[in-house]
């Protein structure tokens, strides 16, 4: 197996984010995810710093690397100048490149993000567009948004904008600009990452015996990844612990 640590070191964020950790826990102390999930950024950094291939592989397949919310509060305080959040980003990227992300429930969700935000970027030039935030799918957006959404033109006009206009908020991004974006994605590896996510997800869908479509969101696998919740994200799964223990031994 290739050396995962050196592969991580190719990521500039990883190189910047991990020098030497002394396990002080200052990152976990203020980590919103550590309070909510069975998650400890300190421990992840400590595990990565073993440079042990098996351990890193386990991490890439684990739930734990997907818990971080990337608020980056950890960067502010680390007395060794590390950024666990960036280490996580590098791990997540590698996990997707290698297709390991589909091994975990939280990892599989990457497919949903690709199909929403990812597709939006290339289709509309925005990560989020108002006409894509359907109150049916986003009940938590509440009545104000529902009203806004149902009267999109009128509401936007009230605030001095024009939906899909030529300027101002939520203007239409011209086709030639979208083409530039696409070329950037091709040149810089953005497309490759999209493809990696798509391919591994399709494989996983087949493995799980779920319906999969090449586009859109109206199929079983998509619905599954956005809503599945095993409820096991607050405690350490026994088998994971044992594997790490065995590997270390």
């Amino acid at each position: 197996m290739e050396d995962l640590y050196s592969r991580l070191m190719q990521d500039v964020r990883f190189e910047e984010g991990l020098k030497a950790c002394m396990n002080c826990g200052i990152c976990t102390a203020i980590c919103p995810a550590a309070e909510y999930y069975h998650y400890d950024p300190r421990r992840i950094v400590d595990l990565v710093q073993t440079r042990n291939n098996n351990i890193i592989k386990e991490l890439l397949k684990s739930e734990t690397i997907w818990y971080c919310g990337q608020c980056m509060s950890c960067k502010t305080r680390c007395p060794r100048g590390n950024t666990p959040g960036m280490v996580i980003m590098a791990l997540r990227k590698l996990s997707q490149e290698l297709g390991y992300f589909t091994s975990s429930e939280k990892g599989r969700q990457q497919f949903a993000i690709k199909r929403t935000v990812g597709d939006n970027v290339l289709k509309h030039g925005y990560c989020i567009v108002s006409y894509d935030v359907d109150p049916e799918v986003h009940p938590e957006q509440g009545p104000a948004w529902e009203h806004y959404y149902n009267h999109l033109d009128a509401s936007l006009a009230r605030l001095g904008g024009e939906l899909n206009g030529s300027e101002g908020p939520t203007r239409l991004i011209p086709g030639e600009v979208l083409d530039e974006l696409k070329r950037i994605f091709e040149v810089t590896g953005g497309h490759d990452l999209y493809d990696a996510i798509e391919d591994a997800s399709e494989k996983k869908a087949e493995e799980m015996g779920m319906e999969f479509k090449k586009e859109g969101r109206d199929f079983e696998y998509y619905r599954h990844v956005v809503s599945a919740d095993s409820g096991c994200h607050q405690c350490e799964p026994e088998d994971v612990r044992r594997e790490v223990y065995e590997t270390r031994r």
């Binding site: 550590a34 309070e35 999930y37 069975h38 009940p139 919740d229 607050q234």
Partner: peptide, 15 residues
């Protein structure tokens, strides 16, 4: 538990 918004909320793990 899971609510009409389609997600569950965990307990705080903070001591």
């Amino acid at each position: 538990g899971a609510n009409k918004f389609g997600f569950a909320i965990n307990r705080s793990r903070m001591i």
